[in-house]
């Protein structure tokens, strides 16, 4: 009998809970904890009040990365350079894949930089709950701080790697290569923003699923590798001649963003308004879905990890 009473009272309570979000209801409560939270309440105001914590997390991640390394931040530059060398040998010299008329080194370097940026946001965000269980199970703070900090950290590393393009850019300019960059450079922030938000949204969607189904961690591991080949990183999308194949490659929302990035930074790329709009729409929907899922998952994530 007692059990039935609780069940009825819990459904009664749902009515009460919704009523108590009205500030005039009874007293001004600063914190109301219930079984669920409003669907579209993303606590942006609260996150803003925790901005100092955000800054600390970013600084900590940055500092902790170089502890006990000899080359320290240099690794950020060595890694893309070595990958470029290998891509150049394998895809340009051996497989003879076109690079859209761009110097191969610049083509690969910009592609790798761009892909590293996306994949570090995506994989970083996709494991938020499991990785931070030690912290999340002890203290409260808006959990969204973590993916945001992760994305900003990746943005900083991306900025450093982007500078690496400059010497190559200058070298090729001096040697008579004519880069057709003008106003298109203004599209660079757009491409970067879309890249980071798509990575963040997909990451937080996966992170919410990983809490319960640990299979996701395994999927993410190889999916990012495969996804790179479904994105025009080692080949330009102008090279795809099969109409049906082009459709599938364009279905990948990253395709247009990568081409946009390449067009903005190197002046060559297959950019279409329809493709960009598609990626933009994908980003908006994924972001909303991701925020809702993340918001719901954070409530009881600590019981499951």
């Amino acid at each position: 009998m007692a059990l039935e009473k609780i069940i009825t009272s819990s459904s009664d309570l749902k009515k009460n809970t919704t009523a108590s979000f009205d500030p005039g209801a009874e007293g001004n409560w600063d914190i109301v904890i219930g079984p669920t939270n409003p669907l579209f309440n993303f606590q942006f105001k609260e996150i803003w009040s925790y901005r100092d914590l955000l800054r600390m997390f970013i600084r900590r991640d940055f500092a902790a990365q170089y502890k006990q390394t000899i080359l320290g931040p240099l690794w950020h530059l060595i890694q893309p350079l070595l990958t470029t060398l290998f891509f150049y040998v394998v895809f340009s010299r051996i497989a003879k894949i076109s690079t859209d008329g761009l110097p191969p080194v610049l083509f690969y370097l910009s592609g790798i930089t761009c892909w590293n940026f996306f994949s570090s946001i995506f994989t970083g965000c996709s494991n938020i709950f499991v990785q931070n269980a030690w912290l999340f199970s002890k203290v409260y703070f808006p959990r969204l701080i973590m993916p945001i900090g992760n994305a900003i950290g990746a943005l900083l590393r991306f900025g450093i790697q982007l500078l690496l393009l400059l010497p190559f850019f200058m070298y090729y300019s001096f040697n008579g290569y004519d880069f057709s960059i003008g106003w298109s450079i203004l599209l660079l922030p757009v491409a970067i923003l879309m890249m980071s938000l798509i990575g963040l949204s997909m990451g937080i969607i996966i992170s919410s699923l990983t809490v319960k189904y640990r299979d996701m961690t395994i999927i993410v591991g190889f999916a990012t590798q495969l996804l790179m080949f479904a994105t025009p990183i080692v080949y330009p999308s102008s090279m795809i001649d099969s109409e049906s194949l082009r459709f599938w490659i364009m279905l990948n929302p990253l395709t247009s963003v990568v081409e946009l990035f390449r067009f903005a930074s190197l002046g060559v790329g297959t950019v279409s308004i329809a493709g960009t709009m598609y990626s933009f729409a994908f980003m908006v929907i994924a972001l909303i879905v991701g925020l809702i899922l993340f918001n719901r998952t954070q409530l009881t994530a600590q019981d499951k990890v």
Partner: peptide, 15 residues
């Protein structure tokens, strides 16, 4: 009470 995890039912209100 510390908002680590949410209740299954019921509410907590704090000032």
């Amino acid at each position: 009470l510390s908002r680590i995890t949410a209740p299954t039912s019921g509410t907590v209100k704090m000032k």
